[in-house]
């Protein structure tokens, strides 16, 4: 599978965030003073790494997993072998997470090449990416378990993914938001991913890293648990 998909997957996942980094980073960045003590494009880089990892894991866990489960019936075929539904769900999650890591690393490579992050600490972001992938992959799988058609995924994108991209410190610091929105952002998982990745890319040790990691882990565990329960209810009835 990887042999067939590696190149299109990297290119497909790279183009979009790259346009954001370059367009917003240089375009908008040239009009802005420094953000948080660094040029805007350097600030934006961490946000885009996290956000594109999230988007890639989400997309894979929703559209691709739904195709394999519902349209192609690949899951049915696999479950006729000595493999249980929970194994299939775990494998989908691992697949989505690994694909998202690939796109996260691709953006990271561009960030390094553009000289937006020179710190050795930024290497730690590579270790963070799988957790981001697992978190958003697991949440999206729970949505997939409830989906009747592809249309259903628009709700999740509109109601959660887009707000997270805007509220969680991807494009601007969370502190810029009104207090109420800051409170909401504190509960959203992407906020915690960005809160670890940004300092690392800027060469700082993240504060409260353990707390942020625990929040991501909790979302990953809850998402996966919900997904297994919902898929069992859907497919093993």
């Amino acid at each position: 599978m990887w042999r067939k998909l590696a190149i299109p997957s990297i290119l497909g996942n790279l183009a979009d965030p790259l346009i954001y980094v370059l367009g917003l980073g240089y375009g908008l960045g040239s009009m802005l003073p420094e953000v948080g003590g660094v040029p805007y494009i350097a600030f934006l880089a961490a946000g885009m790494v996290c956000s594109s990892t999230m988007n890639s894991a989400t997309f894979e866990s929703m559209y691709s997993a739904f195709s394999r489960m519902h349209v192609q019936r690949t899951w049915d075929a696999i479950m006729n072998a000595p493999i249980d539904l929970d194994d299939v769900v775990l494998a989908e999650l691992a697949w989505a997470a690994s694909k998202s890591v690939l796109s996260g690393v691709a953006i990271l490579a561009v960030v390094w090449m553009l000289g937006l992050s020179g710190s050795v600490l930024s290497l730690w972001v590579i270790a963070l990416l799988p957790l981001i992938g697992l978190t958003f992959g697991a949440l999206a799988l729970a949505v997939t378990a409830m989906a009747r058609s592809y249309d259903f995924f628009m709700y999740y994108f509109t109601l959660l993914i887009t707000p997270m991209n805007l509220l969680c410190g991807v494009f601007f610091p969370v502190e810029q938001l009104p207090a109420a929105f800051q409170a909401i952002a504190a509960f959203l998982p992407l906020t915690h991913a960005v809160a670890i990745a940004r300092p690392l890319l800027l060469g700082q040790i993240p504060s409260d890293a353990v707390l942020h990691l625990l929040v991501l882990l909790a979302y990953a565990a809850a998402g996966f648990y919900a997904a297994t329960v919902l898929f069992r209810r859907r497919l093993l009835k």
Binding site: K4, Q72, R73, A77, N80, P82
Partner: peptide, 20 residues
């Protein structure tokens, strides 16, 4: 069921070959 299915083959009603 798992070890039992290891000795069993299934031809489902709908073809679900992997198109990839």
């Amino acid at each position: 069921a798992r070890p039992a299915r290891a000795r069993v083959g299934v031809v489902p009603q709908m073809d679900n070959l992997d198109p990839d």
